[in-house]
């Protein structure tokens, strides 16, 4: 093994020893808590985006006919819809199919059985060729036989806007907490340098280069950041598991198997890498500021 590699290994070993102490682990935990906030928020957003993704984001309008309308009226309406250039797709949902879909929802089976007759109307799901839904919806509402019009992709688009807002908020939070992380490590490294004052002075006296003296501190910062990242991921996993207990029952009541998902592997990797990188940065700033002051006298 070359001397250079040996020195790095020694520095890394020293840093690990310093990390594996109550003070080292406590700092890592603080960082973990701080990093868990944007990381957890990111995991939540990703899960919600998957949820919103199930709802179609195509511009769609649901048309409900009057309950008394006959099938002939529905056919005429269907022809009129297909003729409209602003409409790209038309799907007819007869009342029998609608009833079947509704009975599949938990708890509805008995309700429907007790009703006797089918209360649901025939319906059309119309996909528009452009996003200007409101004018089209208003026009379609005037067609004969139409009792109610619902431009129901509006809520999905609102969800998308909320998601972007959430993402922006997360970035700001992450930037703030990232700065906090750098400050925490700056301080722990400063304290470590002070603790080792004598050793540093003696090392400089007998001919240690700046690089030799700095190396263990850089590794310590890197390791604390990385350990903080690991703690953060563990915290997020724990929180998601706790939340999922409730989410599971809520989703099942909607007939869904939705769960809050953990960060994707790439996302988790980025969290660790960024935390370690910021740890290195904190160490760099601290070492640059504080090592110069310790010189043999």
């Amino acid at each position: 093994m070359t001397g250079w590699l040996r020195q790095h290994r020694a520095a890394l070993r020293t840093a690990l020893q310093r990390l594996w102490r109550p003070s080292g682990l406590a700092s890592a935990l603080v960082i973990g808590i701080a990093v868990s906030l944007p990381a957890g928020g990111y995991a939540l957003l990703e899960s919600l985006r998957a949820l919103a993704g199930r709802a179609t984001l195509e511009p769609q309008i649901s048309l409900f006919l009057r309950p008394e309308a006959k099938r002939a009226e529905a056919d005429a309406l269907g022809r009129a819809l297909r003729a409209d250039p602003r409409v790209s797709k038309v799907r007819f949902v007869p009342r029998e199919d609608a009833l079947k879909q509704l009975s599949a929802v938990e708890g509805m089976g008995e309700v429907i059985a007790s009703l006797g007759r089918n209360p649901l109307p025939d319906a059309f799901v119309v996909t528009a060729s452009e996003h200007a839904l409101e004018p089209l919806a208003a026009d379609l509402a005037k067609l004969p036989g139409v009792a109610h019009v619902q431009a129901d992709s509006a809520w999905a688009r609102r969800l998308g806007a909320l998601e972007r807002l959430g993402r922006l908020g997360l970035w700001l939070l992450a930037a703030l907490l990232g700065a906090g992380l750098v400050a925490v490590i700056f301080n722990t490294i400063r304290l470590q340098i002070l603790t080792q004052r004598e050793e540093i002075e003696v090392s400089k006296l007998i001919g240690a280069t700046d690089a030799f003296i700095r190396r263990p501190f850089y590794y310590l910062g890197l390791l604390q950041g990385a350990a903080g990242g690991v703690f953060a991921l563990a915290i997020v996993a724990g929180l998601l598991a706790a939340l999922n207990i409730e989410v599971r029952s809520l989703a099942e009541s909607y007939g869904s198997s939705f769960r809050l998902a953990f960060l994707p592997a790439a996302g988790a990797g980025i969290v660790l890498a960024v935390a370690a990188g910021l740890g290195w940065l904190g160490a760099h700033l601290s070492v640059s500021r504080h090592l110069r002051e310790i010189e043999p006298r």
Partner: peptide
């Protein structure tokens, strides 16, 4: 540092490390 590696220094206050 390279200059100092070639010089052995002994001070009255020996600057030993007690840890």
């Amino acid at each position: 540092p390279y200059l100092r590696r070639n010089i052995g220094l002994v001070f009255q206050d020996q600057k030993l490390l007690y840890d």
